[in-house]
Design a protein around this nucleic acid. Structure first.
Lengths: 124, 124
DNA sequence: TATACTATTGACAAAATGCATATAGTTTAG
DNA sequence: CTAAACTATATGCATTTTGTCAATAGTATA
């Protein structure tokens, strides 16, 4: 069984996952702000943010990491000394820390808008 | 000036708008749960959910309305008696009310996860 | 030695999004 | 009276984002 996979999902479920995609990069960046890590380990740790392993294809995580590296928020090096296949270890950059702060602010404002929506719904 | 338009946006801003797209349909459906309405009016009312007119192209709203109609969450009829161009008036269906309830639950769970993320960020 | 687990990457199709533009009736300013 | 601005909806297209599959490879274990 190749790790972190799933079957095809329903169109109605895609929309639900979209909300999670929104916090995927911030979650990864936060994990890397806590300590350096590699893709596979990050996939496991994402569970603590509510990402279930069946709900997230690991290729998405790897892709997002590469993209954040291109944005120069993080950088990577090969860990040659680890057991098993070589790992690409990511570490956060200063640029990444400030971007994380921005993303968190953005999430707060989205959250506030969601709050408004929910309240309005309940006063129907 | 054609209503509800804007210029080209930066790639960093796109991600911010993504959060708003997430609550666009639920917002529209909630507005329609409150009272029947047509696209143009809905565009105006969206401001109360934090959608700025410059931040949302009205074609997106019209498209989402058509799609929700295809999903049979809402239905429409032409208002022939109104002044100006004819309006397509939307009304929510039972199916729409239950879907709205589901969407709200989903938003709540996303909100809870965002909360977790924010708390974890602040304990860095 | 076959299977499962660790670990990463690339290609491709499908879906979502942003933007421009077309159409058309009505009101208002000059 | 006529051009501009506003109300109102719709569509096509290019780009971006997403999900899925498949390929590769080293190591541990049954």
């Amino acid at each position: 069984m190749p790790g972190f996979r799933r079957g095809r999902i329903q169109p109605c479920q895609r929309r639900q996952r979209r909300g999670m995609r929104l916090i995927l990069r911030p979650s990864l960046l936060l994990l890397l702000a806590e300590k350096e890590s590699h893709g596979y380990e990050l996939c496991e740790q994402l569970a603590s943010f509510g990402f279930e392993p069946e709900g997230l294809d690991s290729s998405i995580v790897y892709r997002d990491l590469r993209e954040m590296e291109e944005m120069e928020l993080i950088y990577s090096y090969w860990d040659e000394n680890s057991k098993g296949p070589k790992r690409r270890v990511y570490r956060i950059q200063e640029e990444g820390r400030s971007r994380l702060a921005e993303w968190i602010e953005n999430i707060k404002s989205i959250q506030a808008r969601m709050e408004k929506l929910i309240n309005r719904y309940h006063s129907l």
